[in-house]
Amino acid sequence: MTEHQVWRKSSYSGANNNCVEVSNLPNATAVRDSKHPDAAVLVFPATKWTAFLQVLKEKNI
Rank of each mutant, 00 (worst) to 15 (best):
P26A: 07
N60H: 13
N17S: 07
Q5N: 09
S23R: 04
Q5S: 12
C19V: 08
A28R: 14
L53T: 08
C19I: 05
Q5Y: 13
L42S: 04
Q54T: 09
N17Q: 05
V20Q: 04
Y12D: 01
L53M: 09
S10N: 02
K9I: 05
D33Y: 06
K35Q: 12
T47C: 04
E21N: 02
T50P: 07
Q54Y: 08
S23L: 02
N24H: 14
R32K: 02
N60D: 12
N17K: 13
L56N: 03
H4W: 12
G14S: 15
E3M: 08
V31Q: 02
L25Q: 05
S10L: 00
T50G: 07
R32L: 01
F52P: 10
D33H: 05
S10F: 00
N16C: 07
P45I: 14
N18Y: 14
I61F: 12
H4F: 05
S34Q: 06
S34M: 07
Q5T: 10
V6Y: 07
G14M: 09
V31P: 01
T29A: 01
T50V: 14
A51W: 10
A30S: 07
A28S: 11
W49P: 04
L25R: 05
A15L: 10
E58L: 05
T2F: 14
P45E: 15
N60C: 02
N17M: 08
N27T: 10
W49K: 01
V20Y: 08
V43T: 11
H36Y: 11
Q54I: 09
A40M: 13
V55K: 10
V31W: 09
N18Q: 07
S10C: 00
T29R: 03
M1C: 06
S10Q: 00
A51Y: 05
V6W: 08
C19F: 13
E3R: 07
L56P: 01
W7P: 02
L42K: 04
Q5W: 15
F52L: 11
F52Y: 09
S13T: 00
R32A: 00
G14E: 13
P26D: 11
S10I: 00
N16D: 14
T29S: 02
N18F: 14
F52S: 06
V43N: 12
S34Y: 13
W7E: 01
T2I: 15
A51K: 05
A40S: 11
N24W: 07
T29D: 06
N27A: 09
K9G: 01
R8M: 02
A46H: 09
T47G: 04
T2C: 09
K59T: 10
F44P: 03
S34H: 06
V41E: 06
K9Q: 15
K48Y: 08
P26C: 05
F44T: 11
H4T: 07
N18W: 15
N16W: 15
L56E: 03
N16K: 14
W7T: 01
S13E: 00
L53A: 12
H4K: 03
V43P: 15
K57Q: 12
W49M: 02
L56A: 02
K59E: 15
V55T: 13
P45L: 11
V41A: 01
N60V: 04
V22F: 04
D38P: 01
K59A: 09
N60S: 06
G14H: 06
S11L: 03
S23P: 03
P45Y: 15
I61P: 03
E3H: 10
A28Y: 14
N16E: 07
N24F: 10
H4I: 03
L56V: 04
V55N: 10
N17C: 09
